[in-house]
Design a binder for these strands. Sequence first.
DNA 1: CTCCTAAGTCATCGATCGGTGACTTAGACC
DNA 2: GGTCTAAGTCACCGATCGATGACTTAGGAG
Lengths: 192, 192
Amino acid sequence: MAHKRDREATRARLLECSRLRFARDGYDGTSVRDVAGDVGVDPALVFRYFGSKSSLFTEAMAGSSAPVVLPDGPVEELPAKLMHQLVFEDWSEYAGEHPLIAMLRSAGHEDTKDRLRQQVCEGYLDVLSQLADGNEDKNLRTELFGAWLLGIGILRTAVGTPTLAKATEEDLRPHLAAVAEALFGRPVPTDG
Amino acid sequence: MAHKRDREATRARLLECSRLRFARDGYDGTSVRDVAGDVGVDPALVFRYFGSKSSLFTEAMAGSSAPVVLPDGPVEELPAKLMHQLVFEDWSEYAGEHPLIAMLRSAGHEDTKDRLRQQVCEGYLDVLSQLADGNEDKNLRTELFGAWLLGIGILRTAVGTPTLAKATEEDLRPHLAAVAEALFGRPVPTDG
DNA sequence: CTCCTAAGTCATCGATCGGTGACTTAGACC
DNA sequence: GGTCTAAGTCACCGATCGATGACTTAGGAG
């Protein structure tokens, strides 16, 4: 026997594996049998624990509460930190993409859009908005910068644009500074 | 009888309806029966004409060759034109989103990534790259600007970020100018 | 060792899907 | 009007999916 009979542990493993599956293959591309097979458990157990595939998806995505950089350091370093996390962090266990980008694949599901918006707003825009302090349309500037980071991540991984796909973090640094200054109206250092 | 027996016309109607379905519901969310039902035809006919669902998808997406603004006007007006087309154009027949954004929903399909990249590169980046003329890393700047436009469109429609979702074209105009100038190193007028 | 509860399994259902081949029918041509 | 071809239909297959309920078994408590 590989594992003891532990309800909570099995539940956690199911959530972990379904996160990966949902991120990599999308909601429709993931079957309950797949997830159960990863854990080495009978598919029926998934329904006993989560009730439905939809509930499993919701709970898995809720638990994946995007690991967000805390606004601990100086505000000026936030753009570089967020770009690193969104674009360059090693998300290999999530099919090589940031969970937020991967979640776009599951756009067919009802909860997806709401959860996406919640994670983007509370996880990233709230942190970023400090940079726009003092500007008139603070929220708009913040979302525009967030849109840029998200777009870069998508072009890199989901589309595979030639130049951006090969670009390093250092390549983007000067442009990150330029755009951040253009949007937030103040210099933003981008060196680590 | 609603329509005469016309192979080419029926084929065209199948392609048209499948474009909408694939864009709105994604590849997995669209069934051949759905498409056939829209046209009012037997599902088997779809296979007679296209061989497989995958081929139907490929041909439908190829035919949707994203309507791209031609680089006819002055180069300086390109950013505003592309933003209008990508973000504010009325794509109601494609589920309210630009076909490129909608295509992200079908990321499960093999051809999707390739076709996405092709359309983005040949349809948009090639046009945009004129703006980066004279800059050192021309291609990178171009892709970074394209990433921004794409990200804005995604935040607006797929994520539904509060401020951006309600923003008008005029709201974005000054920031479009600022970012374009930051990336391309020259002033870019944004008034229509 | 026994027993009892909960963790996990098995068999199966009904629906839907992509796909196939035999069939029917519309409509142009003589 | 008959006929022949191609457009379109019908019945059906095998696979897969989400989901259900009856069943089996592990493992701690006494």
